[in-house]
């Protein structure tokens, strides 16, 4: 299985995309928590841009720079209040070339 087409990492996939990131204004935030819910924990695998990561002490954090604004995390975790989700400011965020 050494076909380069099939061996891309998510980071490499996202590298193909265009983004305009507004520094210091993340559009998604994870609220401080002692332990993540099952859904929040699942996001470390389910987020298609792999924005969510599990840290050593058991908490989940987000780096939304590669976010494609799909909204999956909002569907799974907004109701529980674990994340705060907003659109990036107008013009910022992912800029699809093909869509």
């Amino acid at each position: 299985m050494t076909n380069p087409v099939t061996n891309l990492r998510v980071e490499d996939k996202l590298y193909q995309n265009r983004y305009l990131v507004e520094p210091g204004r993340p559009h998604i935030k994870v609220r401080p928590h002692a332990w993540p819910s099952a859904n929040l924990l699942a996001l470390t695998l389910v987020c298609p841009a792999k924005c969510y990561e599990l840290y050593d002490k058991g908490q989940v954090e987000i780096t939304p720079d590669g976010c494609m604004e799909c909204g999956t995390c909002r569907i799974l975790c907004e109701t529980s209040g674990e994340i705060e989700w907003n659109y990036p400011r107008g013009g910022f965020g992912v800029l699809f070339k093909f869509g």
């Binding site: 076909n3 099939t6 995309n17 695998l45 389910v46 494609m68 699809f96 093909f98 869509g99």
Partner: peptide, 29 residues
């Protein structure tokens, strides 16, 4: 993970020859 599913689809013997040699220019969700 959705990207793992996509990569598995890409390496499926029925799909792989159809996209062989292609250049990926965007990943979207």
């Amino acid at each position: 993970s959705p990207y793992a599913l996509l990569d598995a689809l890409k390496s499926h013997p029925s799909i792989r020859p159809l996209i062989a040699g292609s250049e990926v220019k965007e990943y979207a969700a």
